[in-house]
Design a protein around this nucleic acid. Structure first.
Length: 581
RNA sequence: GCGCCUGUAGCUCAAUUGGAUAGAGCAUCAGACUACGAAUCUGAGGGUUGCAGGUUCGAUUCCUGCCAGGCGCGCCA
């Protein structure tokens, strides 16, 4: 799971590798036809543009010094017209330097493709993506942000790669907590507060009612009664339950709108209720489930996993049963190639358990658990009872406030409505980027300054680079009307121009790698590197005042291509790219 | 106790899945704006990659053993 050993390379690397392999075959015979020759970007520009390290491992099988192998392969055929130089260095590295005209053609060809050159490996394939999944009647806090933002980035990347994606928000809308909530609601609801802030009020009710179950057995029993009534379809309880869900979704949607997140489906756990008994029956028939201490369980000792309970002593079903039913339903309805779950790290065992059981029941669809590290505060983990929960809405408000202050200082002449809109794009962009730029598996310690960083390696840095290009291109169009840089020849004489061209070629690779490994951070890191290269280029080389017209048009086109990749790439991360910031 | 994960610059993180001199941002210090937008750029200092072994041309990466931390482990989801 998650450890695909596939090597992802771009068109350019593949073409260079093919040429090199012909050299190996020419030098060492047809046996080399089956071997893997990989070309990767050079680790240091001093070495060239690309490199191949595969001569060294061949020393053993070919029984020759690795450096001699590399040299023989390189000399076995005339130099490719893609290259201006090939060198063997160190123990046997093969360093490749591209012919600038050929590099320019590669860049132009890629730019002509849709989505800035993304391949379409997902054509004809379906992915069900299960993410965000907050619980009904509980406000979203910053613990929910990772699943939502990471999940949404994965969603966007897979769509861009041609997959049909079914984004499903698997709401926590069923379970014992509804007995506690319904009973509490009747006793404690404050209608004014409910109207003011529904989900907050529901949470308050839940907390109060839950506390009472701990000290008052009669109350606890009453809560159980309400749950049973709900499960049996009591109209009043059913209506209350539905109301709780409506109020919650309304509030969630307000936050999703601010985050530019949307789903194809909102199927909560309750959607699969009537299938749960059938799942247990299947497990029993298949000989997988057994009775134990009054419950029905599946033992997974051979897999080294804990026992999985599929039916409780009281006859109720739980998480694993519900997830098994969900898989069956999704497979039947969508026939997906993969189902991907984005949740926090604590659920790893649970997913291993139900993936294993699902497999034993005959499910052949690939199931993937994408987990991320918990978000923590410097003083420790979040806990509602410690009162240290930071609501997601408050985080977003704070982000926009901070961004607005900077905009007001730097662009006081801008109309206020526009300032606010920008503050939204920048503030939310900063929050998203702060999360997406880290490997999902790392545990994040939340601090305001880190989450809302506006300089250095941050969302606004990338947005700034993009906006500056837009401004530059506007000026170019105004100063040189009728001159279209988009068809200009790319002249890549300067190392700064060359570096940008090489970096542009890496965009499709970055997206595919990010998607396949479920790590948007790979794309974020790429975009940051591209922006850094651009800023450096921009500082040193003039576009509008270039020495020749050809050079000016070439550089303007390079800028336009960078802007295009930034727009596309940030779009895949769900980060907006205003023309002016 | 068992299982999963993590340990890299003062701080937050990378390192193209075993490659060349381990790179960025923040912070610190020194520079660059009568501007193709300074939310930027140039440079400097800062490292025994938790510790000890092993595998090989080559290890932050793979293996073993320790140390430290996080998470999980039978009726919550």
């Amino acid at each position: 799971m998650g450890n695909e050993q596939t090597f992802i390379v771009g068109r350019t690397e593949a073409e260079l590798a093919q040429w090199l392999k012909a050299g190996f075959v020419a030098a060492f015979g047809e046996d080399c036809r089956a071997m893997i020759i990989r070309v990767t970007p050079a680790t240091d520009p001093a070495f060239g543009d690309f490199q191949c390290n595969d001569a060294m491992p061949l020393a053993k099988t070919l029984r020759k010094p690795p450096r001699a192998i590399a040299e023989a392969a390189v000399k076995a055929q005339p130099l490719s017209d893609a290259l201006s130089k090939v060198e063997v260095a160190g123990p046997g590295f093969i360093n490749l330097t591209l012919n600038p005209a050929w590099l320019a053609r590669q860049v132009a060809e890629q730019a002509a493709l849709p989505h800035a050159g993304l391949p379409q490996p997902g054509t004809g394939k379906t992915v069900v993506l299960d993410y965000s999944s907050p619980n009904v009647a509980k406000p979203m806090h910053i613990g929910h942000i990772r699943s939502t933002i990471i999940g949404n980035a994965i969603d966007r990347m897979y769509r861009a790669l041609g997959y049909r994606v079914i984004a499903d928000n698997h709401l926590g809308d069923w379970g014992t907590q509804f007995g506690i909530l319904i009973n509490g609601y009747r006793a404690f609801v404050d209608q004014a507060r409910l109207a003011e802030s529904p989900v907050e009020e529901l949470e308050r009710i839940y907390v109060q009612s839950y506390a009472k179950t701990k000290e008052d057995p009669v109350w606890l029993d009453a809560c159980r009664q309400e749950l049973v009534k709900l499960q049996q379809g009591d109209p009043e309880n059913l209506a209350l339950w539905k109301r709780f869900i409506e109020l919650s979704i309304e509030e969630f949607n307000r936050i999703y709108a601010r985050l530019d997140v949307s789903f194809d489906l909102y199927r909560g756990e309750s959607y699969y209720n009537d299938k749960l008994a059938g799942v247990v029956k299947q497990l029993e028939t298949a000989g997988l489930a057994k009775e134990s201490d009054g419950a029905t369980v599946v033992f997974l000792e051979e897999e080294g996993l804990p026992v999985c309970i599929v039916r409780k002593k009281d006859g109720g079903f739980n998480y694993a049963t519900s997830d098994l039913a969900t898989v069956q339903s999704r497979v039947a309805e969508f026939n997906p190639d993969r189902i991907v779950y984005v949740t926090d790290e604590r659920q790893q065992d649970h997913f291993k358990q139900f993936f294993t059981i699902s497999c034993k029941l005959g499910n052949a669809t690939h199931l993937e658990h994408v987990w991320f590290g918990l978000m923590r505060l410097p003083e420790g983990i979040f806990a509602a009872r410690q009162g240290n929960v930071i609501k997601l809405e408050k985080l977003l408000d704070e982000a926009e406030t901070r961004a607005l202050a900077i905009i007001q200082a730097s662009s006081p002449e801008m109309p206020e409505a526009q300032q606010r809109e920008l503050a939204q794009a920048i503030g939310i962009g900063a929050v998203k980027y702060a999360d997406l730029s880290h490997d999902p598996r790392t545990m994040i310690v939340f601090t305001w300054d880190r989450a809302l960083a506006l300089d250095g390696n941050s969302g606004p840095y990338l947005q700034y680079a993009h906006a500056r290009i837009c401004s530059l291109l506007d000026k170019h169009a105004a100063q040189f009307p009728g001159e279209d840089c988009n068809t200009a020849d790319l002249l890549l004489a300067d190392p700064g121009e060359r570096q940008l061209a090489l970096q542009l070629l890496q965009f499709p690779v970055a997206v595919v790698r990010a998607a396949e490994s479920y790590k948007p951070s790979i794309l974020a890191e790429y975009l940051f590197a591209l922006s850094q290269d651009y800023s450096s280029f921009y500082q040193r080389l003039s576009v509008l005042k270039a020495e020749t017209k050809e050079q000016r048009l070439s550089r303007a086109r390079l800028c336009a291509l960078v802007a295009g990749v930034l727009r596309e790439g940030l779009g895949l991360l769900g980060i907006r790219t205003p023309r002016r910031i």
